[in-house]
Design a protein around this nucleic acid. Structure first.
Lengths: 116, 116
DNA sequence: CAGAATCCGAGAGGATACTG
DNA sequence: CAGTATCCTCTCGGATTCTG
């Protein structure tokens, strides 16, 4: 038994953010939308390897979180535009940080070359 | 066919970072280690719900990425200490950002109360 | 105490075909 | 064009047992 003291029971707030931008595609999608509004097909072409099913799913998730907006143009052929919402905009600096960190990390990894 | 132009073939650098801090437990583990060096059992008690297997696995991953260090004290009973590496230290501001963003996000979500 | 080994289910993600 | 609908694989993560 001996369950931990309440002082040790920390709750990690990063989980919320990681739950939203985590997964295999969300980061990439958001990163694309940081560049501006994009249509479905445009996202599909821009993100290598993603399937329609996955793209749709992830977009729906992000929409549910109020991170992106979905604008449907009632016309034929259909046209749907995705963009960052007000909430989503606040993610921009986060994503920029992740980007910068990643680049730095990769550089260090390549530059070192002393580990097997 | 009509494969996308090279200009549309963006590569998203956030994937590196998200690949490292993503998953169900890594964020929490790193967040714990941001507070300082911790022993295995201490992490285990501090992170509610994680199993030894998962904790071990995630720690090994992070070690492989050079994000944390693992120090074994050759004694009985065993003692192993985990801490952020130099690389890991550079993640601190990132995690702090994620934390701040999450809190802000949750506040907005609760404060609005206008969506069904 | 800090793990390794084994078995297992759920769900994330993928391939393909179809549609208004 | 922007999705649905199925079906399938495969990894993530969980439960449990054992050990130096």
């Amino acid at each position: 038994m001996a369950n931990p003291s309440k002082a040790e029971q920390l709750f990690c707030p990063t989980e919320t953010a990681l739950g939203i931008i985590g997964g295999k595609w969300k980061g990439m999608i958001l990163w694309c939308l940081c560049q501006g509004t994009m249509r479905f097909g445009q996202l599909h072409r821009t993100i290598p390897g993603i399937t329609q099913r996955m793209l749709t799913k992830q977009l729906r998730d992000l929409e549910e979180y109020d991170i992106i907006t979905r604008k449907v143009y009632p016309q034929v052929p259909p046209k749907v535009e995705y963009a960052l919402s007000a909430h989503g905009q606040t993610l921009k600096p986060i994503l920029a940080n992740l980007e910068a960190w990643s680049k730095d990390y990769l550089e260090q990894k390549i530059g070192r070359n002393d580990a097997g």
